[in-house]
Design a protein around this nucleic acid. Structure first.
Length: 751
DNA sequence: GTTGGTATCTGTGGA
DNA sequence: AGATACCAAC
C-alpha cells in the first residue's frame, strides 16, 4: 500500500476511513482528486468489488481522469467502477429501467436547444405573447422547478411558485410546464433535468423494488464537487444510501468556496447541510487546507478575496511553495489592446521563464471574449486552442445529420423530426407541420404516429410517404449494422451530404468537413475498445446517448502544444503554471446579471476565486477601459474583485502604463484601481448636454468636445480609412495632446 | 412552399 | 454583433 505514503496526514485519514459518512472539504489544489482516487483504490484493495462503487462527477473528463488514476494502483479492474457524470450514469440506469416509467430504452435526450424550441412551439401554440413568455426564461424556470423536485402537478399546486409567476405576469407557466412534460413524454424524450428527475421518480415510486436493487448494487457512493449539486441530485444520492440497516457509505468531496453553478440549481446548502444530515450516522469530516499548487502571493490573494463572502465553511488555505511571483495587472485602454498585451505577456513568459504553450491558459468570463484574444495570438504565431463556446454538436450541419440518426432510433423524437422532415427540401412546409403538431398534441400522440391521420395536400402527403419509407429502410439497416455502418448509409441516402456537396464556399466545405468528422466520431465510438460499465453495445442508439452527454473538454490534448483558452467555468479543476485572467470589469466580471443580487455577486466572487487558484506560479489579471459589447462601445470600471486583493501581492508598485494605480481616487473611495485624475479625468461635460457626432464627419482643424477631456482641437488625422486616428489637443487637461481612434471615440463637433 | 430580406432583441456559465 | 423572428414577394 505504498500509495498511502504519497499522502499527508489528513489526506490519508480521508482515504482510509472507508466506513460510514464522510465529508471532505477540499480547498483548491489540496489534492482532492488524489484523495478520491486513492480512496476508491483503497476500497478495492480492501476487497470491495469495483462494480459496487459509484462515483459521480460533473464532467466526463474528471471521471475519465479518475479511472485512469485508479488504474495505476489497482490495474484494469478500475474500468469496472461506475464512475461518470450524474447525467451519464443516470441515463445508463434509465435505459435499463425505461419500461418501468413508460419510456423505451432508446429514448432521446433533448439538449437545451431542443427544449427551447419545443417550449417556443408550445407557447406559440397556446397563443401566448412570446415576449412575455420568453422561451429561454421559461425553460430555465421549468429546469429549476425540476431541480427542486416539482413535478408539473406539484407545480400547479404550489402557491409560492404560482404567486411568483403571477407577479411576473406569467400565469400560464404551470400549464406550459404540463404541456412540455407531456410533449417530451410522447416524443420519448428526456431533457437534461429529466435524466435526474425521472430517476428520482423511479426510485421514489419504486416499481418492482427497483430502488432496493440499486441500493444493494452500490455499496459505496462517492460524489465529487458536491458543492455544485442541486437538491434533486442530493435527494437521489440519499435515496441510494439511506435505508434500514444501511452502512451509509457515502463520501462527498467539495469546496463551498468553489460553488459556481447556482445558475443551474446548485445549492451551497447541500454541503453546508451535509454535516447536519449525517451527524447521527457518525459523520467524519476532513479538511484539506494545504495547497500544493500555487505560490504564496496567489494563495493569500485568494484567501483575501474569499473572506468577503458571507456564507462559508471556515478554512484557510496555505502553501509552503514560497512567495513566488507577484500578481501582474494589465490595464488596457481597449479590448483590443488587452488582447495585444495578453499575447505579449504570453510571449514574455515563454521567452523569459521558458514556459511551454501547454503551461499557459487565458481565462475569461464569457466565451464571446475569446475572439479578440485569438486574433492577437494568431498574429504572434502562438498555437492555441479554444474550449467551449459553440460546441461541435450544436452546428447546424451536424445537428441535421444527427437529426436523421435520432429519428431513425426514435421516430417519435419531435424535435429531430421537425428538423429533418423537410431537409433537404421535399415540399413539406410549415403549415403541414403545424397541422401535424396540432393533431398530435391534441391526441397526446407523437408526430410520427400522427402521420397518415392528418389530411394534408397531395404533394405533402406523397413526400411524407417517401420520407417514412426512407426512415423505415434506415431502421432495417440499424437492426443489424453497427452505429458507423448505419450512420454512413444515413448520411449518403438521406441527402444531407449531397445538399452540401454543391456548395464550394469556404463555409460549405467546412460544413462538409464537420459532417465527415461526425462520421469519424461514430467510427471512433464503434472501434473503441475502452470498457465502459453500463454501455455494452455499439448500436446507433448507444452512440446517440453517449454523445448527448458528451461535451467540449473531453477530446484529449494529443501531443500538440497549445495555449488554452477557456471560460472560468470550464477551467474548474484544472491548473496551469501561468494564468491570464481577462476582462476584469464591472458588468462583465462580475457579470451584469449578478448586479442586483448580493448572492449572485458572492457567486461571481467564488468564480473569481476559482479562476485565480488555477495558477501555479504566474497570475496576470487584465481589464480594459473600453470594450465592444453587443455591438456597442462600453466603458466599464475595473472589477471590484481587483480592489479586494491587497497591493502587496501585486507587482512593482502597481505602475501600469506609466501611471500609479494606487493614488486615491477623487471620490474618496479607497480603491486601488479606481481611476485617478490623470488616468481618466472626471467628466468635464454633463452627459445630458453631450451629443456625439458620427466619426466620419470629423475632420482636421475642427473643434470638438470629449466627455472626459473637454474641449479640444483636431491637429491632424492619420491612419487607414477604417482606423483613422486623430491627434487632438485638449487644452483643459494636463497632458493635452491625445491620439484617439476615431471609430471608438465619442466626440461632438463644436465648429 | 420557398426565398430573401429586414426588424428586433437579447445579452453568462454548461450537463 | 449575431441570431432569430417575421414579412413580403416569388
Amino acid at each position: 500500500m505504498s500509495y498511502l505514503n504519497e499522502l499527508n496526514e489528513v489526506q490519508r485519514k480521508a482515504v482510509t476511513n472507508t466506513d460510514g459518512p464522510v465529508l471532505v472539504v477540499a480547498g483548491p489544489g489540496s489534492g482532492k482528486t488524489r484523495v478520491l482516487t486513492y480512496r476508491i483504490a483503497h476500497l478495492i484493495e480492501q476487497g470491495a468489488a469495483p462494480w459496487e462503487i459509484l462515483t459521480l462527477t460533473f464532467t466526463n473528463k474528471a471521471a475519465k481522469e479518475m479511472k485512469k488514476r485508479i488504474a495505476t494502483v489497482v490495474g484494469d479492474k478500475a474500468n469496472k467502477v461506475w464512475a461518470g457524470t450524474f447525467h451519464s450514469i443516470f441515463s445508463r440506469i434509465l435505459r435499463v429501467e425505461a419500461e418501468k416509467i413508460g419510456y423505451t430504452s432508446n429514448f432521446t435526450i433533448y439538449d437545451s436547444d431542443d427544449s427551447k424550441s419545443l417550449i417556443g412551439n408550445i407557447i406559440r401554440g397556446m397563443g401566448l405573447d412570446t415576449k412575455k413568455y420568453n422561451s429561454n426564461a421559461i425553460r430555465s424556470r421549468i429546469s429549476s422547478a425540476k431541480s427542486k423536485l416539482l413535478s408539473p402537478q406539484a407545480y400547479a399546486n404550489n402557491e409560492e411558485w404560482l404567486l411568483q409567476d403571477r407577479m411576473n405576469a406569467r400565469p400560464m407557466l404551470a400549464e406550459i410546464y404540463k404541456r412540455y412534460a407531456a410533449r417530451c413524454k410522447s416524443a420519448g424524450a428526456m431533457d437534461f433535468d429529466d435524466l435526474l428527475f425521472k430517476l428520482y421518480e423511479l426510485l421514489d415510486q419504486n416499481p418492482d423494488n427497483v430502488k432496493e436493487k440499486y441500493q444493494q448494487k452500490f455499496k459505496y457512493v462517492l460524489v465529487d464537487e458536491f458543492q455544485d449539486t442541486n437538491q434533486l441530485q442530493y435527494q437521489i444520492v440519499k435515496k441510494l444510501v439511506e435505508y434500514e440497516g444501511s452502512p451509509n457509505n457515502i463520501c462527498v468531496v467539495g469546496d463551498d468556496a468553489q460553488s459556481i453553478y447556482a445558475f443551474r440549481g446548485a445549492t451551497i446548502e447541500n454541503i453546508l447541510d451535509f454535516e447536519k444530515d449525517y451527524k447521527s450516522k457518525g459523520i467524519k469530516i476532513f479538511k484539506l487546507e494545504q495547497n500544493y499548487r500555487s505560490t504564496d502571493h496567489i494563495v493569500q490573494a485568494a484567501n483575501e478575496v474569499i473572506t468577503k463572502n458571507r456564507k462559508q465553511i471556515q478554512k484557510k488555505i496555505w502553501s509552503d511553495k514560497g512567495e513566488g511571483h507577484k500578481i501582474k495587472v494589465i490595464k488596457a485602454i481597449s479590448d483590443t489592446e488587452e488582447g495585444r498585451r495578453v499575447a505579449d505577456t504570453i510571449i514574455e513568459h515563454k521567452n523569459r521563464y521558458h514556459l511551454s504553450n501547454s503551461e499557459i491558459a487565458v481565462l475569461y468570463r464569457t466565451n464571446a471574449q475569446s475572439r479578440i484574444i485569438e486574433e492577437y495570438l494568431r498574429r504572434q504565431n502562438v498555437a492555441y486552442k479554444i474550449f467551449g463556446g459553440q460546441s461541435f454538436y450544436q452546428r447546424k450541419e451536424v445537428k441535421d445529420l444527427l437529426g436523421y440518426m435520432r429519428v431513425v432510433v426514435n421516430p417519435n423524437d419531435e424535435e429531430a423530426f421537425k428538423r429533418v422532415v423537410n431537409f433537404p427540401k421535399r415540399g413539406i412546409g410549415k403549415s403541414s407541420i403545424d397541422k401535424i403538431i396540432a393533431f398530435a398534441s391534441e391526441n397526446g400522440m407523437s408526430l410520427w404516429d400522427s402521420l397518415g391521420k392528418v389530411p394534408l395536400p397531395a404533394k405533402a402527403t406523397k413526400s411524407l410517404g417517401e420520407f417514412v419509407k426512407m426512415i423505415r429502410s434506415f431502421q432495417r439497416v440499424c437492426e443489424t449494422a453497427n452505429a458507423y455502418d448505419a450512420a454512413s448509409v444515413i448520411s449518403k441516402k438521406s441527402g444531407v451530404t449531397d445538399a452540401l456537396k454543391g456548395d464550394s464556399s469556404v463555409e460549405g466545405v467546412n460544413r462538409l468537413e464537420n459532417m465527415n468528422s461526425l462520421l469519424d466520431g461514430v467510427k471512433d465510438f464503434v472501434d473503441s475498445d475502452e470498457e465502459v460499465v453500463g454501455l455494452e453495445d455499439k448500436s446507433l442508439a448507444s452512440f446517440l446517448q453517449t454523445i448527448a452527454l458528451y461535451t467540449d473538454q473531453d477530446e484529449d490534448k494529443g501531443d500538440k502544444e497549445f495555449v488554452t483558452l477557456m471560460s472560468v467555468h470550464a477551467a474548474k479543476g484544472l491548473e496551469f503554471k501561468s494564468i491570464l485572467l481577462t476582462g476584469l470589469e464591472e458588468n462583465l466580471f462580475p457579470s451584469f446579471m449578478s448586479m442586483d443580487s448580493p448572492d449572485a455577486i458572492d457567486e461571481e466572487r467564488r468564480l473569481f476565486y476559482v479562476a485565480i487558484t488555477r495558477a501555479e506560479q504566474f497570475l496576470t489579471l487584465s481589464f480594459a477601459k473600453s470594450r465592444i459589447q453587443h455591438g456597442k462601445m462600453r466603458y466599464n470600471p475595473p472589477s471590484r474583485f481587483l480592489e479586494e486583493i491587497s497591493l502587496n501581492h501585486i507587482e512593482s508598485t502597481a505602475v501600469i502604463s506609466g501611471r500609479r494605480l494606487s493614488e486615491p481616487s477623487r471620490a474618496g473611495v479607497s480603491g486601488n484601481f479606481k481611476s485617478n485624475k490623470r488616468a481618466a479625468p472626471a467628466l468635464m461635460i454633463d452627459p445630458k448636454d453631450f451629443q456625439p457626432s458620427p466619426s466620419s464627419e470629423i475632420k482636421e482643424g475642427m473643434e470638438v468636445l470629449h466627455l472626459k477631456f473637454g474641449k479640444g482641437k483636431i491637429v491632424k488625422i492619420d491612419g487607414g480609412v477604417e482606423n483613422r486616428i486623430a491627434t487632438i489637443n485638449f487644452s483643459q487637461i494636463d497632458s493635452p495632446e491625445r491620439r484617439i481612434m476615431l471609430k471608438f471615440a465619442r466626440l461632438q463637433i463644436v465648429s
